[in-house]
Amino acid sequence: MTTANMRQIGVGILGWGVALVMFLPILIIGVTAFKTEQDAYALSLIFTPTLDSFREVFERSHYSTFVYNSMAVSIISTLLSLVIAVPAAYSMAFFPNRKTQKLLLWMLSTKMMPAVGVLIPIYLLAKNTGLLDSVPGLIIVYTLMNLPIAVWMAFTYFNEVPKEILEAARIDGANAWQEIWHLLLPTTLPGLSSTALLLIILSWNEAFWSLNLSSVNAAPLTVFIASYSNPEGLFWAKLSAASFLAVAPIMAVGWVAQKQLVRGMTFGAVK
């Protein structure tokens, strides 16, 4: 065997070792979710798989309500962020002026304000307007929280559109609306959809605001899972089943959108 081959095998063992160690905690819930409550504490891989825990999660708790809240909050806030952000990004990408760069930086800088700095007033505002523990309340907060990322990402995608195509369309007599509808949206749709995926991931997993602003009615999955932390909630198989369902779909989305994650979360500073 050549040294190059040996090296590749060594790198492979190391790489897979690292991957399994990082993935182990997720693997544990993936396995425990299919065990019975008695088997769950054994950490053994020999057991009869069962779907009982999943069934119980759905029957005993209002699990579907939490799923519904998570979905409503993340999907609607994502759509709202995009609806508000896309026109702004369009304006900044195609009609820039001297202030555009400053404005963009200012928008990004709002993302750098720590949530805890505004926790108290947001909590009180939500309380006094009846938005505390309500789905619309969380939607508003998540929309605003993700707006800078949405503007930024949409801006970079618009900026990549070759200007010649738009000019050609204009010469052919297309008006602004036709230009947006027939040219800009189709060419930037992949970018905008991956922006949407990133925003959905961020709001699905968001836990600072959800823990502080919701308790019963509007609680998304993050809050529901946190309720397992009290001692009487130590049911590993059910906890695992509930966690597995909460994590698996968004992980699939994350794997698809990993490139966009780098772009969106570093504000384009790393490509």
Partner: peptide, 11 residues
């Protein structure tokens, strides 16, 4: 390797 980043913090 990147999977843990997509796990919600409470989980």
């Amino acid at each position: 390797v990147i999977a843990p980043f997509f796990v919600m913090p409470t989980v």
